[in-house]
Design a protein around this nucleic acid. Structure first.
Length: 816
RNA sequence: GCCGAGGUGGCGGAACAGGCAGACGCGGCGGACUUAAAAUCCGCUGGCCCCUAAGGUCAUGUGGGUUCGACCCCCACCCUCGGCACCA
């Protein structure tokens, strides 16, 4: 381990205190500079910061600092995502109140975050679990409710019969057991609140004008999962059932004549009524079985398809045939109509199902050259319609439209677009979240809490018992209230909101965090929003980013602002892994940065994290390479502080070279930071440092040029190593602060090369290289190439077929 | 299974408008300094052929192809990592 030439702890502390005292990074709206809103996803208050947080924070800070130096009024805020399940678990396990636990973590994490030395404007800090914040989270619920975007419906939750409580997915462990008491859990329907995100499905698939990674856009489009097809009515005739039809959604109306069975989701309400007595026992057993399965299990491709015939039939109106009705777990009640038509000949899943249960397979789309033989597998490609009445002979692609037209004319169905996207379920049966501001009145029904009564405060004296009972549900003073409408006795909603709700608008709040007349100061919001650059992990591709976009669009439609997208540019860094796994407390492979920071300073840790590789790739944590960074910064320290410069034999060519290298480096570094290529940016700075070390030894440039080059190096390094460069900058007699200096200006003239290395190949193989003036003509270059001894040796006795010249690059002599 | 990203020295990674493969750094080897070690500095560091040098030759997951020229483009395949999960 190299010995450090400077005391990083002392330097870090000194400058962090000074910057804070001078409010160096606090920004205001009255700046003449153009605004730039640089945001990093805020951390959850898990307890402490690990190296993965640094990997997210440090490079984005470098970029923000770079933007500052480039002349932008950069807002770079930080805060805490503070509501959530772990706080409540800690409360139950260790008897600490969630508020106490969370705020202790905030204190700790804030201190850790400050050691990064980032240009955060801490005056804008936001903590989502404080009433001053969640008052507005509740306010947004009311706004969405008023806009008709919030509604109540039944939805299944994991239910532990022993704890008498609902469980999050992650609380269900092993083979479907409660993590607390190991009782087998099951799905149970509860009335819950939803946001109508599906209303924005089409708009959410659009990303025009956004500078986002292609893969995230693709993931979001797949998440919406738009599919166009038709809803088709099948005739139903069943004693005691009012419904005269069952409707299915299909993307393949052209195959409707090939329907040989129908499958309903087991939880479909009509299943019960349509099941015949002789099938009842088996059907009920199957339904009970399904209730124990998670959606992921139900949809697993690994699993063999199962299902049960329920004894009833429907009629295919197009050909009058009776079709048997089944239930199967692979049909989801939440998608389409919850009923699927089975066309085994033209759908692989249906084919497997029909084979297993011996259901007829009827070909209705003939593959080219089909002679009537049986299928080995489903034919899902294009073909010609057969066995399809008046549609016979039609290419199936046209058949989709033709069948749809026919259905619409007969009123047996209609064209329809379905989405995979479901409405956003925001109810959580827990304490540690923003209360849903609703009241249930026996007289007036569902009544929203008036705005003036917000926030609905979480009662502080709630009890956290290991029974799992929701603390709010059993808190009488909280539950019992009066109806805002008729003033009679009423009860409060006891569910709280999904924490994604809190993180869907925090980036608005940063614009004016202290504001109390609304969620934000409209003038300030107008100045700062939308976010110019948002960085964070790709794990938020669909949930957080998607909800935030929905929120923004909904608020835009309420007239709260005019833009429809919150994040103009998005960048996802990769994940830092340890022991080949993602870091997590439960795996026990968390790398804590504090010791590293203490020993070698924030600048070394910042630089090393960026030097590992491309930011978007992440990588395995291994501190072995850190020595390289320490050595480099030590060399720099020595160069600037310990080794004074003396002119020995000043040489005009050397001065010119120095200027050229300086400007080439400015170009590389500027371009690299702008594109988040921090690893190559650091290589360029290392090369430049090495070059200056040689110049210092040689003493062949004038003093002024040398010092100017050193200054340029410090300025370019300032975003990466803010503490060290500030120290060196002031020690070399410059006025504080380097972080208020402009970014070095690039000159193309200065960077231009006079000589260039021409590569000479024979048949594409490297044979020689010559240094030539950049101005060399094609004829001269080719001539020169053919004169080279090594080239001659390789073309001797052969015919020159062609000579290829790539200006400034190479000459390739092709011989036969 | 589908979608996406990626496979380059002992290691992290450079080079991608098709044009010097291995920048920068780690590690290793050798040397200087030292009583010695650490630290520091200097040199070497993909494989093979060759006494050495000069040079040659093979090398970017595998096999083909396009091209004067391929890490880069096309086809097929094999791995690794993310995401989605029977979406009707």
């Amino acid at each position: 381990m190299p010995v450090m030439k400077y005391d990083p702890q002392e330097i870090d502390r000194k400058w962090q205190e000074r910057w804070a005292k001078d409010k160096l990074y606090e920004v205001h709206e009255d700046s003449p500079l153009p605004k730039y809103y640089a945001l990093t996803m805020f951390p959850y208050t898990s307890g402490d910061l690990h190296i993965g947080h640094w990997y997210a924070m440090a490079p984005s800070d470098v970029h923000a600092r770079f933007k500052r130096m480039q002349g932008f009024n950069v807002m770079h805020p930080q805060g805490f995502d503070a509501f959530g399940l772990p706080a409540e678990n800690a409360a139950i396990k260790r008897g600490i109140h969630p508020h106490t636990w969370t705020m202790k973590n905030v204190e700790n994490m804030r201190l850790q975050l400050k050691t990064i030395g980032a240009c955060y404007d801490w005056s804008r800090e936001v903590i989502t679990c404080l009433p001053e914040y969640y008052k507005w989270t509740e306010w947004f619920f009311l706004k969405l409710y008023e806009a008709g975007l919030a509604y109540r419906a039944k939805a299944p939750v994991w239910w532990c019969p022993h704890c008498q409580t609902s469980l999050a997915n992650e609380q269900v462990v092993g083979a479907g057991e409660c993590e607390r008491c190991s009782t087998p859990v099951a799905r149970r329907d509860l009335e819950q609140w939803f946001f109508r995100i599906t209303k924005y499905a089409d708009e959410l698939m659009e990303h025009t004008g956004l500078d986002w990674p292609e893969r995230i856009k693709i993931m979001q489009r797949n998440w919406v999962g738009k599919s166009e097809g038709a809803e088709i009515s099948f005739g139903l005739e069943h004693p005691g059932v009012a419904e005269k039809e069952l409707r299915v959604f299909t993307t393949r109306p052209d195959t409707v004549f090939g329907v040989t069975f129908m499958v309903m989701a087991p939880e479909h309400p009509l299943v019960e009524k349509l099941t015949t007595p002789e099938c009842r026992a088996e059907v009920e057993a199957y339904i009970a079985q399904t209730r124990k399965e998670s959606e992921i299990e139900r949809q697993s491709t690994e699993k063999e398809k199962t299902g049960v015939f329920i004894g009833s039939y429907v009629t295919n109106k197009l050909n009058g045939e009776k079709v048997q009705l089944w239930i199967a777990d692979y049909v989801l009640f939440s998608y389409g109509t919850g009923i699927v038509m089975g066309v085994p000949a033209h759908d692989t899943r249906d084919f497997a199902f029909a084979k297993k249960y011996d259901i007829p397979i009827r070909v209705v789309i003939a593959p080219p050259g089909w002679k009537g033989q049986e299928f080995e597998d489903a034919w899902v490609e294009e073909g010609t319609m057969v066995n399809s009445g008046q549609f016979n002979g039609l290419p199936n692609v046209q058949g989709k439209g033709a069948v749809s037209d026919f259905l619409e004319k007969k009123d047996w169905g209609k064209r329809k677009t379905t989405y995979r996207l479901r409405d956003w379920l925001i109810s959580r049966q827990r304490y540690w979240g923003a209360p849903i501001p609703m009241v249930y009145c026996p007289e007036c029904g569902i009544v929203p809490v008036p705005e003036k009564d917000l926030p609905v405060l979480l009662p502080e004296d709630a009890e956290f018992r290991p029974t799992g009972e929701s603390p709010l549900k059993y808190h009488k003073e909280f539950v019992n209230t009066t109806c805002p409408h008729c003033h009679g006795p009423a009860q409060r909603e006891t569910d709280t909101m999904d924490t994604f709700m809190c993180s869907s608008w925090y980036y608005f709040r940063y614009s004016s965090p202290g504001y109390d007349k609304g969620p934000w100061d409209p003038q300030k919001l107008k100045y700062w929003l939308p976010v110019d650059l948002y960085t964070g992990g790709a794990e938020h591709a669909v949930m957080h980013l998607f909800y935030s976009r929905f929120f923004t669009k909904a608020l835009r439609d309420m007239g709260l602002f005019e833009f429809g997208e919150p994040f103009i540019r998005l960048f996802n860094q990769g994940t830092i892994i340890a022991e080949h796994q993602k870091m997590s407390k439960s795996r026990g492979n968390v790398v804590n940065p504090d010791e590293y920071v203490k020993e070698m300073g924030a600048d070394v840790v910042r630089a090393y994290l960026m030097f590992i590789g491309p930011w978007e790739q992440g990588g395995e944590w291994n501190d072995a390479g850190m020595n390289g960074i320490i050595r480099w910064l030590n060399r720099l320290w020595a160069l600037v502080i310990e080794e004074s410069y003396t002119e020995k034999k000043v040489d005009a060519a050397a001065i010119k070279d120095l200027h050229r290298i300086t400007h080439q480096t400015i170009h590389r570094v500027t371009d690299d930071i702008a594109k988040f290529r921090f690893n190559t940016m650091l290589s360029a700075l290392m090369e430049f440092t090495n070059y200056l070390g040689k110049a210092q030894e040689a003493g062949n440039v004038d003093k002024a040029s040398y010092h100017e080059a050193i200054d340029t190096l410090l300025l370019m390094l300032a975003p990466t190593a803010p503490h060290l460069t500030e120290e060196l900058w002031t020690r070399t007699g410059h006025p504080y602060s380097i972080h208020q200096r402009p970014w070095p200006k690039f000159s193309a003239d200065m960077a231009a090369e006079e000589m260039v290395t021409l590569v000479i190949q024979v048949n594409g193989k490297l044979r020689d290289r010559v240094s030539v003036p950049v101005s060399i003509s094609e004829a001269e270059a080719k001539d020169l190439a053919l004169q080279q001894e090594r080239v001659k040796a390789h073309i001797q006795g052969k015919n020159i077929a062609q000579v290829i010249y790539v200006p400034g690059r190479l000459v390739n002599v092709v011989v036969k």
